[in-house]
């Protein structure tokens, strides 16, 4: 038995079950036997069947055949996800330049860069992105607290 496959299968069955359960609450049009719930329910049922098949594959598999996987580094994974979440939260009020300066600086540190490289990247990257997206492609990037000095 491969425990990882059984867990993956279980997670897919649970996920499909949740979607199917949520879809049951969608309203239907009078006189029609199918509505907004039909498609998500079909997809959820399919996902649950796949979960069962993956779990069955895992249950029958030779445990010695486990693949080598890179070891999970939860600290850096959480840090990177935190940077993305922080960017989404800060962007509207802090503005594009300051948010992306902080995000690129922090990301450089996560990927093993030194403080000097991180600071340099944090200073240059927002300006380069500003030129490409704001000046050339006319994407309306928010200025946030820098609005008084917007150019």
């Amino acid at each position: 038995m491969r425990l990882g496959d059984v867990l993956t299968g279980g997670a897919l069955v649970a996920g499909g079950g949740l979607v199917a359960h949520a879809a049951r609450g969608f309203p239907r049009m009078a006189g029609i036997a199918y509505g907004p719930d039909l498609f998500p329910t079909i997809a959820a049922a399919g996902l649950m069947l796949c979960g069962l098949a993956i779990a069955a594959e895992g249950a029958r598999a030779d445990p010695g055949a486990a693949a080598e996987q890179e070891r999970l580094a939860p600290g850096r994974i959480i840090a990177l996800l935190g940077i993305v979440a922080g960017t989404a939260l800060a962007l509207p009020w802090l503005g594009f330049h300051l948010t992306f300066a902080a995000a690129t600086l922090a990301a450089c540190r996560v990927f093993g860069g030194g403080w000097i490289a991180a600071a340099a990247l944090g200073a240059v990257a927002p300006l380069a992105l500003h030129y490409i997206f704001y000046s050339l492609l006319r994407v309306p990037l928010p200025w946030g607290v820098l609005t008084p000095v917007a150019w």
Binding site: A88, L89, L91, A103, A107, G113, L129, L137, P140
Partner: peptide, 25 residues
């Protein structure tokens, strides 16, 4: 480019690229 420079740039580029589509977080 060093990985520690390229990866944050890819991250920033990806986030701005996504933001550019909807102009929303």
């Amino acid at each position: 480019a060093p990985r520690a420079v390229l990866m944050p740039m890819v991250l920033a580029l990806s986030l701005v690229g996504g933001y550019a589509i909807t102009a929303s977080t």
